[in-house]
Computed example of a mutant assay.
Amino acid sequence: MRSGHMPIGRRELAKQAKRERIMTAARDLFAEHGVDGVTTQQIADRADVAIGTLYLYASTKAELLIMVQNEKFAAAIDDGLAAANAAAGQGALEPVVALIRPVVEYVREHIENGRTYLHELVFGDPVEPYRNAGLALAGRLEDGVTGLLAQDDHIDAADAATLARVITAIIHLSTTATVYLHRSDEAVIADIRDQIHATLAPHHRAA
């Protein structure tokens, strides 16, 4: 009996293997040296592919960074959503903080890479496939915050979406601004928590 899926050909398998080698090489080199300390030629050499082949998968070093960081960003959002569900019933603040904690930790895992990644998402070409995927992840995070805020009886749906945009801006600034770079993750998260609390407080006082 035939399955409903066509078998993957050798050419496609070879492409997948090359992409995985490039991804692994870029991930390891960025972790070891930071994005500014790595060249595309070094990534190609580590992946054992020609530089022209590498450019078929990502045309710039920035795209390679985004490709790598997108996977980490997606995993951080998954972890955050699970933590937010576990914190349900504690009002809006604690679930939102639970959601963003893994994201903050991921961005700050390697400060240079995290700052460059967020800068590229905000200021780069949004139609580039990897940036587009990263922006979709940012939208998923914002939607997650919106959903948590909408569960608060004091916040209506329209305000929840606007507040979520404000909160994601707070996260972006607090994880990339130079003044925060030498603080610990816990200090940064505590500061973000205070900012979110102040942002939500007027809605609770007005109730």
Score class of each variant (00 low, 15 high):
residue 19 R to I: 07
residue 47 A to M: 04
residue 113 N to K: 03
residue 91 G to L: 10
residue 39 T to A: 05
residue 112 E to I: 06
residue 193 R to A: 06
residue 98 A to K: 08
residue 25 A to Q: 02
residue 75 A to S: 09
residue 84 A to G: 04
residue 20 E to N: 11
residue 14 A to T: 14
residue 101 R to A: 01
residue 43 I to M: 06
residue 32 E to H: 10
residue 65 L to M: 07
residue 70 N to F: 01
residue 94 E to M: 10
residue 42 Q to A: 08
residue 56 L to T: 09
residue 198 A to T: 12
residue 201 A to E: 15
residue 45 D to H: 11
residue 194 D to T: 10
residue 198 A to K: 12
residue 81 L to R: 13
residue 121 L to S: 00
residue 117 Y to I: 04
residue 132 N to D: 14
residue 141 L to E: 01
residue 21 R to M: 05
residue 196 I to F: 04
residue 163 L to E: 01
residue 151 Q to N: 08
residue 186 E to R: 14
residue 14 A to H: 14
residue 107 V to R: 02
residue 176 T to Q: 00
residue 190 A to I: 03
residue 36 D to K: 09
residue 189 I to N: 01
residue 102 P to M: 01
residue 180 Y to P: 00
residue 84 A to Q: 06
residue 22 I to T: 05
residue 187 A to Y: 07
residue 164 A to D: 00
residue 114 G to Y: 02
residue 141 L to R: 03
residue 30 F to W: 02
residue 54 L to V: 03
residue 46 R to W: 05
residue 11 R to N: 09
residue 53 T to V: 08
residue 115 R to P: 00
residue 191 D to H: 13
residue 181 L to Q: 14
residue 194 D to F: 08
residue 81 L to P: 01
residue 168 T to G: 02
residue 173 L to P: 00
residue 90 Q to K: 10
residue 125 D to G: 06
residue 148 L to H: 03
residue 142 E to F: 07
residue 36 D to P: 04
residue 193 R to G: 05
residue 188 V to N: 01
residue 137 L to Y: 09
residue 20 E to M: 13
